[in-house]
Design a protein around this nucleic acid. Structure first.
Lengths: 191, 191
DNA sequence: ACCTGAACACCGTTCAAGT
DNA sequence: ACCTGAACACCGTTCAAGT
């Protein structure tokens, strides 16, 4: 076993580390996993991670970018023809497995620009979908306020009060507030 | 200066520690304050805190119990004659200064029974108020679902997506969903 | 350029030793 | 019973030394 592996291109090695980190973070969460855990899962020395990532927060941000990026790309291609309401609720359902990792980003956002940016990228995707849906609202309602309510509901669902998941709470809000406009699509999602 | 102070009753000494911890937590948040910070603010050795509290989490829980307990007691006595809607919104406004400390409880809940209990006590107070308000809803709406939406909105407001505070989001939900039933009270709160 | 073991800094917690 | 300084365990990060 060679002491270094410089024949492996940098990007590939970084991807191996990322894959290992993803496994460990998904299994145990952010706070509970140590740099030692990640390095062992990747089969390298703990210090070696710092040649590829500046900090544990940056590893976390890269993991979340990959997880969210893959899901969002898939949702975009697979559902491009569907209406905004269906795309939003399908997305919420699809992303539910990463719920607790998402919540663990919150306390890190103010300490890490990478995590701030990763969170913001994801939230602006959600916000975009929400605005698409909310724009169908009637003249009487404050669309920006409704969008804020939905974003807050998303951030707060299961965090950690034992409410229902976001993909149940948010359709309720939309159905109640927007009324019949949106109810047409319910059948496709509830299967 | 005596090396010990056993002439001071235990409860009083614990209160001094709690007061010092409260100051530091309110000023800098939970994660950013160390046991050293607390001990220095109280003028004792770091290790001494452990004679009164089992852990940092327990100090935090005690601080939150005091903060919330005082606010809730005051709200109950001062607003006993008002309707539930007004009491809820007044409470949300009053508790806003402790927003970030509340959010810092979330990641600790699963690791500390004391924090879990403190959070739960507070949330069930909110939940009670929410149910009082929601019970005015018409026959057509799922009251339990609406209550869950409001609780999720509370937990997610400003956490950390730049939505409006809970005391703006939640009245919007209630006004929109419950309609005129509740609108009567708006003037008293918006002063 | 890449990788490592050892050391460093920090922090929550424990403990033997004081009064 | 109460209080302390020192030590311990753990973890993220740095660094000098290897290939």
């Amino acid at each position: 076993m060679p002491r270094n592996r410089q024949h492996i291109p940098r990007d590939e090695r970084a991807s191996e580390l990322l894959a290992a980190a993803t496994r460990v973070f998904v299994a145990n969460g952010y706070a509970a996993t140590t740099m030692t855990d990640i390095s062992q899962a990747a089969g390298v020395a703990r210090a070696n991670i710092y040649w590829y990532f500046p900090s544990k927060d940056d590893v976390f941000a890269a993991v979340m970018n990959e997880l969210y990026g893959a899901e969002i790309a898939e949702l975009k291609s697979r559902n491009a023809d569907l209406d905004a309401y269906t795309r939003l609720v399908t997305g919420l359902k699809q992303l539910y497995p990463y719920r607790s990792l998402h919540l663990e980003m919150h306390p890190r956002i103010e300490h890490s620009r990478a995590i701030h940016d990763s969170h913001e990228t994801f939230m602006s995707w959600i916000r975009g979908l929400v605005h698409e849906v909310v724009d169908q609202a009637g003249a009487g309602i404050d669309k920006q306020m409704l969008a804020d309510v939905i974003v807050a509901t998303f951030e707060g669902a299961r965090a950690p009060s034992e409410t229902r998941p976001a993909n149940e709470l948010i359709p309720f809000i939309l159905d109640t507030v927007l009324g019949g406009t949106v109810l047409l699509y319910r059948r496709e999602i509830d299967q």
